[in-house]
Amino acid sequence: MIGVISYLVFFATMAGILAIVVLGLNLQWGYTGLFNGGVAAFFGAGAYVTMLLGGRPEPGQFGGFLAPFPVAIVGGILFAGLIAWFFGVLTLRLRHDYLAIATFGVAIALESVARNAEWLTGGAKGLRGFPRPLEATITALGGGDNFLYGLFFLALVLAVLAAVYVGLERLTRSPYGRALRAIREDEAAARSLGKNPVRLRLESFVIGSMIMGAAGGLYVAFYAYVGPQDLAPILTFQVWAMLIVGGAGNNRGAVLGAFLIWAAWTASGFALAALAPQAMQLYTGPIQYILIGSVIVGMLLWRPQGILPEQIRQQGRN
């Protein structure tokens, strides 16, 4: 039984990290209507910078400054925000396609840098060796068993998740949040009310991307490893699926979607390993992708508002 609990703690930690990313995307897409096609880029930017600042030094490798975890992760968050700001300024004045395509491109470009700039990013073999926050202390408390540390890390992730959730709830329920929705629904009207749509969009985009960067920092602390595969487009896709299924524009929906889709993704691995005949194993990867693609498209066709739809109180509409 302890094994099952240990696995569930592990699962919940990963799902919690993904849920933070989904919350960031929800601010951008759900509340502001910005299409971020490069979620992996902002997540990865946070992860790599956290690793560079907080990781262990290694010969011939830039970084490894052993900065305390809070400092390292703040560095990652700021870097993710900086990239978002740069591309936001470039694209947010244009029609929405530009942001989608530019962010999609950013992810590919960052992946190239991660894969090739060996002195900086470790190249294709990635960077490893990250001192997890308080690991030695807490493992010692648990008598050398690392289960306690697993629990602690889950608590840390859930605390960040809760903080982001509460922060976003307050933000989106405030007049500021209403202004974001207003520009999403009718930009001209919002403009006529004296709102500056470009600035509001930019702020929302940057904040959302910084939240993704924070998740990337937690991910690095969790795995003590980051590599170019972590920037692959599949992450962007998983995160979008979580938001669409859970319910865009609803933070609870975003979190629910993250746990649900990640559970389905991993459970389908269990199920295919257990039930699919041996000869089918080669095909499980493509089948899984087709299934998840169908879930997305089906969801958009039959229930575009997601499981938990956006709740707009009366005064929320402009």
């Binding site: 299409f35 929405h96 896709f237 087709i290 998840i292 169908s294 997305i296 958009l300």
Partner: peptide, 14 residues
């Protein structure tokens, strides 16, 4: 836009 993401994934894997 997002639906097209899904469609691309389905086509490629099919």
């Amino acid at each position: 836009v997002f639906a097209s993401f899904g469609v691309a994934l389905i086509i490629r894997n099919a």
